[in-house]
């Protein structure tokens, strides 16, 4: 039975791998595909701490932005190849996330969220107002730029296709890690903490330590995504990376798809990104911000009518239909004789 669950994802993965090979995909469409995958990746990264563990961070951009800046700086100033740079940046960001997270873990969850939001705002102000940080020139409000090159060893490609495969690989990696987590002791502990910290502690769960782990893993992956993004466009824009919109959008994608599930963030990201894209393409240019309005409305509708997100809702519906089908079969089997109780 378990094997059946894997057939569909594997087929989808194969299709994704073969897609650019079979079809010729133009530059702009390739960018779109890469962006979708990257958002799916970020939504899945956030899911580890926000969805599974209940650490509802509103400041995901902190880690994304740090990952981007660190990777870029390591590349430009230390000549460190981004393949390694991404990992180093992710590790450093992970450690940073624990250091800033530690004082906030004991707070009531709502204040944890607000604290992450405050930190995001601080990062944005710092990176848009200061040209150099710790002696390193990071570009200030103009952002961190470097010239795009053609050096595969340094993650610089002239065509977009390699980037597509890199981000696809990253997405697969984060999904595998998420899947492994949910089936392990750590994953159960994460979800217990999310449901009820006090009860979890009484069952021997080291709540603080596990929160730090969840935060580290999530920040690690988010930062790697940031590093990738930096190399992809050769540019880090602080007001975008540390802006509210990116963080909230990633969160919305995860939540609308289904925050406590494996595929929720993926589906949610695909859905929201597609809707955003369509609206931006077909709406008249005078209607500026229509996409944001729609995203906000989607979030409101989703929270109100589909509390767990899309995937749990669909799973529930499927189960309800299966149960009513079972009931109907039972009724048929007990025949028209009547009088037989169910």
């Amino acid at each position: 039975m378990k094997q059946k669950k894997w057939i569909l994802p594997v087929i989808v993965l194969l299709a994704a791998i073969l897609l650019p090979v079979v079809f010729h995909i133009g530059l702009s469409n390739m960018s779109i595909l890469i962006s979708v995958l990257l958002y799916m990746y970020w939504a899945s990264s956030w899911n580890i701490m926000g969805g599974y563990t209940g650490l509802f961070s509103l400041g995901n951009g902190i880690y994304i932005g740090l990952g981007a800046y660190l990777t870029g700086c390591l590349f430009v100033y230390a000549n460190l190849t981004p393949y390694a740079g991404m990992l180093v940046a992710a590790l450093l960001t992970g450690v940073f996330s624990i250091i800033i997270g530690y004082p906030t873990f004991r707070l009531q969850s709502i204040f944890y969220s607000l604290a992450t939001f405050a930190l995001l705002g601080m990062m944005k102000i710092i990176f848009t107002n200061f040209q150099t940080i710790f002696g390193v020139n990071v570009g200030g409000s103009n952002g961190f730029k470097f010239s795009p090159g053609n050096d595969p060893l340094n993650m610089q490609f002239s065509s977009k296709m390699p980037y597509y495969y890199i981000v696809l690989g990253m997405l697969v990696a984060v999904l595998l890690v998420s899947h492994w987590i949910t089936r392990s002791k750590r994953g159960f502990y994460f979800r217990a903490i999310s449901a009820n910290e006090g009860a979890a502690a009484s069952l021997g769960v080291s709540v603080l330590s596990l929160k730090m782990q969840a935060q580290f893993i999530s920040a690690f992956f988010s930062a790697m995504g940031g590093g990738f993004y930096c190399m992809f466009i050769s540019y880090v824009d602080p007001s975008k990376m540390f802006g509210v919109e990116l963080s909230i959008n990633v969160m919305i994608m995860c939540v609308v798809g289904g925050a406590n599930t494996l595929w929720g963030p993926v589906i949610g990201a695909g859905l929201i990104y597609t809707i955003n894209r369509i609206v931006t393409m077909y709406a008249p240019s005078s209607l500026n911000g229509l996409a944001t309005l729609i995203s906000g409305l989607i979030l409101m509708i989703c929270v109100f009518f589909l509390p767990g997100g899309l995937i749990p809702f669909l799973a529930d519906e499927r189960e309800k239909r299966a149960m009513s089908r079972r009931k109907a079969t039972l009724q048929k089997q007990s025949g028209g004789g009547g009088g037989i109780h169910e």
Binding site: N196, I252, G289, T292, S295, G296, I298, M300, V303, P307
Partner: peptide, 29 residues
């Protein structure tokens, strides 16, 4: 939303966050 139990605060936060986004965009339009 309030009566949704322990996770109510998350739903309320999300709902009002959506409201906030939508209102900003609406008034911008």
């Amino acid at each position: 939303l309030i009566n949704r139990g322990k996770a109510a605060w998350r739903d309320i936060l999300l709902f009002t966050a959506g409201m906030s986004m939508a209102l900003q965009a609406l008034f911008n339009l």
